[in-house]
């Protein structure tokens, strides 16, 4: 749908707005901003055709820092607002910026519905496992036991796994990345941008002030090797400094094993379009320390996007009935004349 016109070559600078960025020093949001500012100019889409729509939260300040069309809306509703924007002008590439509270607590309902409808939105959910903007309350992704201002004795809510939620809702493109792995993050964003349909990216993001170190177990480049499972389509599902560990079937489940000569042949291969969705689902349920944390693209399966279906019906209706004629519509039905 989106044409790349002969507009001048864009650079990162073109996407930096004149507004001072006001996140806390050290906040993970900075690198996510930088990553998107790197990705957008590479897509061959004129700058005016991007719309970035956010809810409310630290993360949702994002649009102010991008020199594109932007809409900082209300808490939890960015997905619903973006649905209207995309339907009204399918020619736009619409990005949604949301947080774990914004997208999965107050906006959880809308999140389910945009994903099931396959609205062509690129959704980035900043998961810092905390409400940042309101200064540190537990969120729907906070682990049980987390002590926050509103859970002084520890959180008793069982957390949601964003990637699992997105898969369950039927999202076509589901991925996870980490704020401090810029290379990985940009590659996932690029793939999402090129995907037609709902693309959901969870970014594990560090809130230095209210939940510092939430993702520490696999944050550093060293620990990553051991504790993170990089998902690459068509590649074996292995991890560890020397790829010495791998995933194999164990009954209906998947087991993590030390690879040896006997089981090497059984190591599973990642398939983002695996038909049943079982692989993506099972991987989405992996959690540290029992299992490595998968990052990368869990699933990528295209089907007709919502706006295509909506516009398809409009085209069909016009084919069948002609372009609407107001005069005829006004005079349609049983009429009578007084003279």
């Amino acid at each position: 749908m989106i044409e790349s016109s002969a507009s001048p070559v864009l650079t990162k600078k073109d996407f930096v707005s004149d507004q001072q960025v006001k996140w806390c020093p050290g906040c993970g949001d900075y690198s996510i901003l930088a990553a998107l500012q790197t990705v957008l100019p590479k897509l061959g889409i004129p700058k005016e055709k991007f719309a970035i729509i956010s809810g409310i939260g630290c993360s949702s300040r994002f649009p102010y820092y991008m020199d594109t069309y932007g809409f900082h809306t209300i808490h939890g509703r960015a997905t619903a607002i973006a649905t209207g924007t995309k339907l009204a002008n399918p020619d736009l590439q619409v990005w949604v910026i949301t947080g774990d509270g914004d997208g999965l607590s107050i906006g959880g309902n809308h999140m389910l519905h945009v994903l099931r409808r396959n609205v062509d939105l690129k959704i980035i959910l900043f998961n810092n496992e905390i409400y940042g903007l309101t200064k540190g309350q537990f969120s729907p992704t906070s682990p049980m036991g987390l002590k926050t201002k509103t859970s002084p004795m520890g959180n008793v809510d069982r957390p949601l796994t964003p990637v699992s939620v997105a898969l369950a809702a039927g999202a076509g493109f589901v991925a996870r990345s980490v704020d401090n792995d810029v290379k990985h993050l940009t590659s996932v964003m690029e793939a999402a941008a090129k995907f037609k349909g709902s693309a959901f990216i969870e970014v594990l993001q560090n809130c230095v002030i209210f939940n510092d170190g939430a993702h520490n177990d696999f944050y550093g480049s060293l620990s990553r090797k051991d504790k993170v499972l990089y998902l690459e389509n068509g590649k074996p599902l292995t991890y560890g400094a020397n790829s010495e560990k791998g995933l194999v079937h164990k009954g209906f489940a998947i087991d993590c094993v030390d690879i040896d000569d006997a089981n090497r042949g059984q190591v599973l291969t990642h398939d983002t379009s695996e038909e049943t969705g079982t692989l993506a689902w099972t991987l989405s349920q992996f959690d540290y320390p029992e299992r490595p944390v998968p990052v990368g693209i869990f699933r990528s399966v295209e089907r007709p996007a919502f706006h295509e279906l909506v516009d398809g019906q409009i085209a069909d209706a016009r084919k069948a009935r002609g372009n609407g004629d107001l005069d005829r519509l006004l005079k349609a039905g049983v009429t009578w004349t007084v003279d």
């Binding site: 809306t73 607002i81 209207g84 924007t85 009204a88 309902n109 389910l112 519905h113």
Partner: peptide, 20 residues
């Protein structure tokens, strides 16, 4: 657009108005 609730109904309309 038959939305999932009235909030989304109003919000989608606002999004559409933003887009003209």
């Amino acid at each position: 657009f038959q939305a999932e609730d009235e909030i989304a109904g109003a919000c989608s309309a606002i999004g559409a108005a933003f887009a003209g």
